[in-house]
Amino acid sequence: MNALRRLLRREDLHSLAAPYALDSLDAGERRRFEKHLDRCEHCAGEVRALSEDAVRLAWSTAAPAPAALRERVLAAVRATPQEPVPGRQAPGRERTPQLPPHVWGTQPPPARTRTPRVRPLLVPLTTATAAAALVVAGLFAVQAGRTQDRLDAERARANEIAQVLAAPDARATSSKDARGRGIAVIASATEGRAVVTLSGYDSPPGGRVHQLWLMRPDVQPRSLGLLAGDTPLIATGLDASAMSLAVTVEPGGGSAQPTSQPIAQLALKSVGFGE
């Protein structure tokens, strides 16, 4: 009885191969069918063949993509870290690749030489400016040491950064002292936003913090937030009067106004502000 029901149920699942290949299952059925695919080699083969057929339908729809799309995608690529190669990532909360097993693979592929490992992001950043490299390196440092709980927050931050970079007027600048410590910024004047990264500085002793300030002519400095290590900080609400950025060491929790001399400063004129 149970065996018969199981058989009927499996028969029913088999019949979903074509609808699945056409992406015409609803979300719940899709999940159930993919679970079944994990265990049914025959179905996986069939789905693969039917999916190849379905893809042929895609070819008749090709159309030139808008030129602006290219710029946006390439800018976002420069700012977006790649996912670790499957098999080396923590299982569980990974949410992005909701793709069919026949596409992603139900098992993580074994480590092989064919797929180069993800290199540190500084290597491929040949076209980005040094400042962009600093920002992204900071981002990646955070991701490498991330906990699962922080994954979504990091993703959201990566998206925000990608947005700043995708702005048509996004520009980068940085400054460094003799010891290689510095501050880097990627900013969009039209969006009034900037991604700011501090690099090379040790955490201040005694629970003190690095605080970022916006300097404008004839106005008191405005706090843009606290910088945690080399994690990028996204500053918003910058207007044309923004002259420069400054970093000071402040008591834990930060101060209303700077209480010490800046350890790092950066003019914003070259990125479209202070006009």
């Binding site: 893809v55 190669v85 992005t96 990608a162």
Partner: peptide
């Protein structure tokens, strides 16, 4: 952008890159 982020998941043994990409786009 997802192609960039997830390119490491492509497995040539399972089909062509174009199929993989268009399947993703269609989904």
């Amino acid at each position: 952008l997802e192609l960039w982020r997830s390119a490491g998941r492509f497995d040539p043994a399972r089909g062509s890159a174009l199929s993989w990409i268009l399947t993703l786009a269609h989904r």
